[in-house]
């Protein structure tokens, strides 16, 4: 059994980087199931190789390097006709994801509040898309709209949620420091 101290140290680095890692995998793999599978693999590799991690370095960047390798492996596995980004873009996204994470834990907390503020019909669409993983075509049938309208709605929902989270964080920051 690994020492508890080592596990604590790992968690201290891993947990803040976790949302960014998930985001990277979703950005390059797009399929949430594949992204989750690879996330588990990457987590496992990070834990196994944690001994090799130089703690003076950026953990997120190190993690993204490993994630990049696992993504390549996954892309080879799924070599059938899937729409995928070029290797150059995959590498660039790993670099971007390895930059300092942006208060992800806080964003998650605010996001829950912002989701609750959505009107019920929009909340339903979000649940269909992200909980049931329904396709936009399915959602369109279920809410009685066309796909183009649902696409536009998704753009607006993503924008609104991002704005809501940003503003919530900004408001708290102002309250704490008195400055913007």
């Amino acid at each position: 059994m690994r020492e508890n101290l080592e596990q604590d140290a790992f968690l201290r680095y891993f947990l803040p980087a976790q949302p960014s890692l998930r985001g990277y995998l979703l950005a390059v793999l797009r399929d949430p199931v594949s992204a989750n599978d690879v996330f588990q693999e990457v987590s496992s590799v990070l834990w196994r190789k944690f001994d090799e991690f130089d703690q003076s370095r950026n953990f997120a960047a190190w993690a993204m390097g490993i994630a990049k390798m696992q993504v390549r492996r996954q892309r080879q596995r799924e070599a059938r006709s899937r729409l995928v980004f070029s290797d150059e873009t995959v590498d660039l996204l790993a670099t971007v994801a390895g930059e300092s994470p942006m208060d992800e834990d806080a964003r998650l907390a605010y996001l829950a509040g912002c989701l609750n503020k959505l009107p019920p019909n929009h909340k339903n669409v979000v649940a269909l898309r992200f909980q049931e993983r329904a396709s936009l075509a399915d959602i369109a049938v279920r809410i009685g709209k066309n796909v183009a309208a649902v696409e536009m709605l998704m753009v607006r929902l993503r924008r609104a949620l991002r704005k809501c989270v940003d503003e919530s964080m900004k408001a708290v920051r102002v309250a704490q420091t008195g400055t913007v």
Partner: peptide, 24 residues
């Protein structure tokens, strides 16, 4: 590839998607 800001935006939106699933 040509726009680093777009790369960051794509990563942020994907991260937000992952977080929505988690929050729900």
């Amino acid at each position: 590839r040509e726009n680093l800001e777009l790369a960051r935006y794509l990563h942020q939106m994907a991260t937000q998607d992952a977080m929505i699933t988690q929050a729900l």
